[in-house]
Design a protein around this nucleic acid. Structure first.
Lengths: 199, 199
DNA sequence: ACCTGAACACCGTTCAAGT
DNA sequence: ACCTGAACACCGTTCAAGT
């Protein structure tokens, strides 16, 4: 029935408590990375973090709230490098700028491919209204707007959405095959997006 | 520790039992479609199917075995329409053939987008060795081989894998935005794949 | 052959009790 | 303020008992 509570319950004020929260989040990330959602249990998180289950629920109102924080942190990180890439791209021709954005996404996703893939899935399942996600979308739309004259697409917002989906899919697919060369992945994504976008 | 058992446990021989298995699978599909993995419980499946939980476990050794059968059926269906499309494509130039394949994938995925997306996620989580999936891959590789002279890609197997990932991503993204026009989706996917593939 | 439902181990979450 | 762990409702899975 009721929606799942996702926002952290209570802010840790003492340094000791901040450390507890970090150790819990680290354990959660490691479990999600190693075993995916299947063995991601609150008991396993507490055990791996070396705290009692009660401590987990003191700061996180639900299992999903743990995932939500990991998603937010990941998005904040992606936002930082994508904003930087977007700024660099401003003085570049279309394809060089596109390459900058693609490169930022690859580096982010390829750092921890298994974790990112799971977070991604949960991101679409959970009703997060994340500000970083909206700024990421806005950065891509701004890039597209800048080159709109050369582009085939008219709905820039939908195009930005499709770009993110395509980048994620091709990075995940490469990671699944065990590929690790960012250069080769970059080239393929740029080719696909150029075909999608250009007039 | 041990791997999850995925193959059906026992074949229903009497018509009554075949009906039981079907009603269980239908309930499972409806639950997955409506609520995703979150509320997909064996108890809910049994209740919705109107059978006892014992009956579910008589035919399926685990919850994942239910999902596995749904995945296999979905792949078998996609294989049928993709094989047909591949045959039609044989007498066509590259882009018309590509369009045939893309159209088949769209029609399959857009029929039940939410269900297909969840099955897709589980497909990569579960250790399925599905024959239909390999024939789908082979069909796409065969198509690529036929036009290899015009193509930029050298690793046809990786390219076929990327094509499937791209198609799924762009169909899912469109479905997520509420888009329902197969024509518009087709055009965007064909543009992206043409850019990816062509020299 | 097929179906049932109580039983058991485990998971998500709460809460009274401690420091 | 922070932490603990027993307690409870529920879920995955089994199995003895039925037709």
């Amino acid at each position: 029935m009721g929606a799942v509570a996702l926002s952290p319950r209570k802010r840790p004020v003492q340094p000791r408590a901040q450390a507890t929260v970090e150790v819990i989040l680290t354990a959660a990330a490691q479990l999600l990375e190693r075993d995916g959602l299947a063995r991601f249990t609150t008991n396993a998180v507490a055990a791996r973090a070396g705290v009692s289950i009660g401590s987990v629920y003191q700061y996180f109102p639900s299992k999903e709230a743990l995932t939500a924080v990991l998603i937010e942190r990941s998005l904040a990180e992606l936002e930082r490098s994508l904003t930087q890439a977007g700024n660099d791209a401003r003085r570049m021709p279309f394809e060089a700028g596109l390459r900058k954005l693609v490169r930022a996404a690859i580096q982010h996703q390829l750092a921890r491919p298994a974790l990112e893939r799971t977070l991604d899935f949960e991101e679409r399942r959970l009703p997060l209204a994340d500000a970083a996600a909206e700024r990421i979308q806005a950065t891509i739309v701004a890039f597209l707007k800048q080159h709109q004259g050369q582009l085939w697409v008219s709905n820039l917002s939908a195009a930005a959405h499709d770009m993110q989906a395509t980048m994620r899919a091709l990075i995940d697919a490469a990671a699944e095959r065990g590929e690790r060369s960012a250069d080769a992945i970059e080239q393929r994504i740029v080719r696909a997006l150029r075909g999608y976008l250009l007039r």
